[in-house]
Each structure stands twice: as structure tokens, then as C-alpha cells.
């Protein structure tokens, strides 16, 4: 394999700086002791992190986001795993349509989904309901789980299942002892990816949350449009830290490159 020249490496360095700069700046500003967002700062302080933990609205929003992401990722996994197995294993009329339908939220703008669900929830009289917010998120994140589980189910050696059958395994043992363990990395990776996507989702959520069910990204968005102070940077730094931790876990569980690039 040929080497990259100096020109290529400088280009690469610029791209990396470009990608990381806004995140690094956020983390630096988060530690400012001052009241403004100016850089470079005069010193080092944790006062804005302390400020975050005194804001009940942010803590509630964070709490909401965690429960929302956990429940919706779990529900999405529960419906995506059987759907993925049916789509990869069974031939039935409408299979391709269902597959396309379940993946379609990826190409439908979240904003359009947001206003559509806003209308539905208003008509049903469930606006601001946390349970319906969870279901709305399940729709949006199911494609992520589905894609990874589909890949795992397609990549799996089907003859292992045949071997188990020939050794006397019934339908239940077959699923619990062979199929599920073999696609588990895909299932777990899909769950985590769904969790992250639900946790980060802002565009749809802004339409279907009420002040009581506001999620962290929505709270941050609203806060950022109203006022800008270093507390926003502190919250952002915490979100970045949390995401990095989740990504390390994801990497351990499934391999980050497989999740991001989708290679087998």
C-alpha cells in the first residue's frame, strides 16, 4: 500500500482539526471561571458544572432523556429482532414492503415526523404524554436496530441452526440457545445505537414534548436560543463525555467501525 504524501497528510490534519474543533472548544469553555463565553479563559473552574447540577430543569430533562432512550431502545429492539428474523428467513407476500417501511424513518425528515405526530397526538388528546413520546422515538430508532440485526442475521451461518435442529433442538431452544446468542452482538450494538440516537434526538422531540417531558437536547436547544452562558458549555461537555463513554462500550460490544461503517 502506497504512503500518503505531505500534502495529503496536511489536508488530513486540517480535516481532523475541523471535525474536532467545535467539540474541543466546548470542553475548554466549560471550565471557564468567567461569566462569558470568551476564549482563552483566565483560569480553571468547575463553577459551571456545579451550576448545571443546581438546575432542576436540566436534571429533569436529563432524567427524562435517559428513561426515554432506555425504554425506546428496548422496545425498538423487541420489535426489530423478530421482524429482522422474519425478513431474512421467511418468504411471504409484502416482505419487501415491510422491510422498506421499517427502514423508511431514515429518509423521512424528522421534522416532518415531528409535525405529523404532533397532529396525531393532538387529535388523540395525548399531547405531552411520555408514553406516546416513547412510541414516537421507537418509530424513529427502529431502523438502526433493524439494520444491525438484519446484517447479523444475514451474516450468520444458517447451517448452525440446521445442525442444532438435527441434534434435536425444538423451536424455543433453537432461538434461545443458538440464534439469539449468534446474533447477540448485532442486537446489543443495535440497542446501543438506538439508545444514542434517541438520546440525541431533538427535531422530532421538540414538537411532541411538553415542559414536563422535555428531553435534554430539547432543553438545550431552547436554552441556546434564549441565552448563551458557559453553563451551556458545561452541559455540552457532559453530553460529550457521556457519548464517548457509550461509544467505548459500543466499540467493546460490537466494534465501532462495524456500527458506523456497517462492514461485516
Amino acid at each position: 500500500m502506497s504512503r500518503n504524501g505531505p500534502l495529503a497528510l496536511s489536508f488530513h490534519a486540517l480535516v481532523v482539526i475541523f471535525m474536532l474543533a467545535p467539540l474541543v472548544v466546548v470542553c475548554l469553555v466549560a471550565f471557564t471561571p468567567e461569566n462569558t463565553l470568551s476564549l482563552p479563559t483566565s483560569g480553571f473552574s468547575l463553577r459551571w458544572f456545579e451550576a448545571v447540577f443546581e438546575r432542576a430543569d436540566f436534571l429533569d430533562a436529563f432524567h427524562n432523556s435517559l428513561i426515554l432512550a432506555f425504554s425506546s431502545a428496548t422496545l425498538a429492539t423487541l420489535i426489530a429482532v423478530p421482524a429482522a428474523l422474519a425478513i431474512t428467513r421467511l418468504h411471504f407476500p409484502g416482505r419487501d414492503f415491510l422491510n422498506a417501511l421499517f427502514l423508511s424513518p431514515i429518509i423521512i425528515p424528522h421534522l416532518v415526523l415531528g409535525v405529523a405526530m404532533l397532529r396525531l397526538f393532538a387529535l388523540m388528546g395525548v399531547s405531552g404524554s411520555f408514553s406516546w413520546l416513547i412510541l414516537a422515538h421507537v418509530v424513529v430508532i427502529t431502523p438502526y436496530v433493524l439494520r444491525l440485526v438484519l446484517a447479523a442475521a444475514v451474516g450468520m451461518d444458517r447451517s448452525a441452526e440446521q445442525a442444532a435442529e438435527s441434534l434435536g433442538a425444538g423451536r424455543v431452544s433453537l432461538f434461545c440457545r443458538i440464534t439469539l446468542p449468534m446474533i447477540l452482538p448485532g442486537v446489543a450494538g443495535g440497542w446501543l445505537l438506538a439508545f444514542i440516537n434517541s438520546f440525541d434526538e431533538v427535531t422530532l422531540s421538540i414538537f411532541v414534548t411538553s415542559p414536563a417531558t422535555q428531553t435534554l437536547p430539547v432543553r438545550m436547544y431552547v436554552y441556546a436560543t434564549e441565552s448563551i452562558d458557559p453553563m451551556m458549555a458545561a452541559v455540552s461537555a457532559l453530553v460529550i463525555a457521556l457519548t464517548v463513554v457509550t461509544m467505548v462500550v459500543l466499540d467493546r460490544v460490537y466494534g465501532l467501525d462495524r456500527v458506523l461503517v456497517g462492514k461485516q
Binding site: 451461518d157 440446521q162 445442525a163 435442529e165 438435527s166 446468542p181 449468534m182
Partner: peptide, 20 residues
């Protein structure tokens, strides 16, 4: 008969071992 009730021993081309 179902494969599971035939009781035959099958060795597959890919070996089909249970990786876990």
C-alpha cells in the same frame, strides 16, 4: 418428520459449530 425428530448426525461443509 421434523429434522429434530429424525435423530440423524449431520456434518456440514462449513462445520456449523456454535461459535458461542
Amino acid at each position: 418428520a421434523k429434522p429434530s425428530s429424525r435423530g440423524l448426525g449431520v456434518v456440514f461443509q462449513s462445520y456449523a459449530l456454535f461459535p458461542h
